[in-house]
């Protein structure tokens, strides 16, 4: 019966950063309500491929198991998403697992998402609160603005939006939609506004918003339903004005 059922997986593997990728198939016993992570754990428990050969177990990343940390992003049947929230039952088999190749692939499904964290540093993704002395409490934020900001605060730097963006690739310097949406997030904070222009410098820079071609894939794939394209359009508006005025002031 159901215990006999198997799940077939096809994993794009890579032994180390500078080696070639190859595909490997696995067949694992089915259990009800399995997600892709539990399927991968099954391989980890018994690393035998579909031909019955014992192999190195598949490497991947995970933490929260509830779609809030962003560590387990990978391409599942071609589309980028979180392995922990993807139910095996809903997928066509063999289930194809590939790393997000927009990022440097370290091993099997493990990628290096450092560029996203670097991008957050570039856009000054923080609120400058205190200097050498405490500056007191900041202005109040209306609940409407809190609600709007909240959506952007849920970004888990998972990388899906960058992986699906046709304009984030090795040929383009684009920092990508995640960092731009965070720019909007920090710029709308009343204290964050103090460093707004510094962030806009990045937005109008070579790595900035001019690289977006409005394909709007980012907003479609974002697991957190962050209104990325709204942030992009708003930033376009601000960046255009900022670029023009700062140039006229020279």
């Amino acid at each position: 019966m159901s215990a006999e059922k198997v799940i077939r997986l096809k994993v794009k593997r890579k032994d180390q950063m500078d080696s070639e990728s190859y595909w490997e198939e696995f067949a694992i016993p089915y259990r009800p309500n399995m997600n892709v992570i539990s399927a991968l754990m099954e391989i980890q428990r018994n690393p035998v491929n579909a031909e019955g050969t014992k192999v190195r177990s598949v490497a991947w990343e995970y933490n929260c198991l509830e779609e809030v940390c962003g560590a387990c992003s990978m391409r599942i049947n071609g589309k980028v998403r979180q392995a922990c929230s993807t139910l095996v039952e809903k997928l066509e088999q063999p289930i194809q697992l590939e790393p997000m190749e927009t990022f440097p692939v370290e091993k099997d499904l493990v990628v290096d998402r450092q560029r996203m964290f670097d991008a957050l540093q570039k856009i000054k993704g923080w609120i400058p609160i205190d200097g050498t002395y405490a500056m007191g409490s900041g202005p109040l934020i209306s609940s409407r603005e809190q609600q709007e900001a909240y959506k952007f605060s849920t970004c888990m730097t998972c990388g899906c939006c960058l992986d699906a963006c046709p304009n984030v690739n090795s040929g383009s310097p684009f920092i990508g939609p995640q960092a731009l949406a965070q720019t909007k997030y920090f710029n709308m904070h009343p204290t964050g506004k103090l460093t707004k222009n510094e962030r806009l410098e990045v937005v109008i820079g070579d790595e900035g918003i001019s690289n977006c071609g409005n394909s709007q894939n980012c907003v479609e794939v974002c697991p957190k339903d962050i209104p990325l394209t709204t942030a992009l359009a708003e930033l376009n508006h601000e960046a255009n004005r900022y670029a023009l005025w700062s140039w006229l002031k020279k």
């Binding site: 699906a164 046709p166 304009n167 071609g213 394909s215 709007q216 894939n217 479609e220």
Partner: peptide
Amino acid sequence: SKSNTQTYKYERNRLF
């Protein structure tokens, strides 16, 4: 730009 309309068959991606 690296088109990916085969994978992401969204309307706006096709227009892109």
